[in-house]
C-alpha cells in the first residue's frame, strides 16, 4: 500500500546493510523501561542462578567482578525501531558463568529476572557460544543506571528488550515461559533480522 507523497530517507548502502528491516540508525542512546530506575546497592547486590524456584548458586558483586571477563563490539537493535552501531560492552559471558558455577545448563530455556520485577525469556542456546553476557561495563565505564547498571543481560543478536536491565539472576525453566513484554504481545524470540517484534510476526 503506497503512501501518497512519501519518499523516505534512504540510508547509505553501507548503513542499510547493517540495519535490520524496519530499523533506523540513531547516534543517541534512547532509554526504555517500565518504571523508575530501581535502587540497586552493590553492597547487597547478588546474582543468582536458579532452576525453577531452587537456587543453584549466587555471587556477590565482588565475586562477580572477579569472574573471567569478555568484551563485545557491535550493533544493537531496539524493537522501538532504533539501532545503534559500534557499541562496546564488557562483562561475564554466560559460558563463563556456567563454568564458574560448575554446571551445564539444566534446561533449554530461561527467564532473566531483574530488580524492578521485569523478566524476559531467552532460549539457553542463544546465550552460549560467546553470544551473550551479563554486562557490567559500557565503553569501559560502569553502566549508568539509566542503561541498566550495575549489571544487565546483554544479548545483542536479539531485540534489546531481551537484554534485561538491572538483572539479578537467571531462572532455568522447563519450557519457554513468557516474560513481562512477551505476556503483552511481544515476540517470544525477537530476532531483528526476521523482524520478530510481536507475536505473529
Amino acid at each position: 500500500m503506497v503512501t501518497r507523497g512519501f519518499v523516505g530517507r534512504r540510508q547509505p548502502p553501507e548503513t542499510g546493510a547493517r540495519l535490520p528491516p524496519g530499523q533506523y540508525l540513531t547516534q543517541d542512546f534512547p532509554i526504555l523501561q517500565i518504571g523508575p530506575n530501581p535502587a540497586v546497592d552493590l553492597a547487597t547486590w547478588r546474582f543468582t542462578l536458579r532452576e525453577g524456584a531452587r537456587p543453584i548458586t549466587s555471587w556477590t558483586w565482588a565475586e562477580f567482578e572477579a569472574l573471567p571477563r569478555t568484551a563485545w563490539h557491535g550493533d544493537i537493535h531496539c524493537v522501538t525501531k532504533w539501532s545503534k552501531f559500534d557499541t562496546d560492552w564488557e562483562g561475564v559471558s554466560i559460558d563463563d558463568l556456567l563454568a564458574a558455577a560448575g554446571i551445564a545448563a539444566p534446561t533449554g530455556y530461561l527467564l532473566a529476572e531483574s530488580y524492578d520485577d521485569y523478566s524476559t525469556n531467552v532460549p539457553v542456546a542463544d546465550l552460549l557460544g560467546g553470544r551473550a553476557m551479563v554486562a557490567t561495563r559500557y565503553r569501559g565505564e560502569p553502566i549508568h543506571p539509566d542503561h541498566g547498571g550495575p549489571a544487565r543481560l546483554f544479548v545483542p543478536h536479539l531485540y534489546f528488550w531481551k537484554s534485561a536491565k538491572w538483572v539479578k539472576g537467571l531462572r532455568f525453566t522447563q519450557e519457554d515461559t513468557a516474560g513481562y513484554w512477551e505476556l503483552r504481545g511481544y515476540h517470544m524470540y525477537g530476532d531483528p533480522w526476521r523482524e520478530q517484534r510481536y507475536i505473529g510476526d
Binding site: 503512501t3 512519501f6 523516505g8 530517507r9 533506523y24
Partner: peptide, 11 residues
C-alpha cells in the same frame, strides 16, 4: 508508510 518503490518506514 510505504514509498512508490516499496521502501518502508515505521514509527
Amino acid at each position: 508508510l510505504t514509498a512508490e518503490d516499496g521502501y518502508r518506514a515505521q514509527r
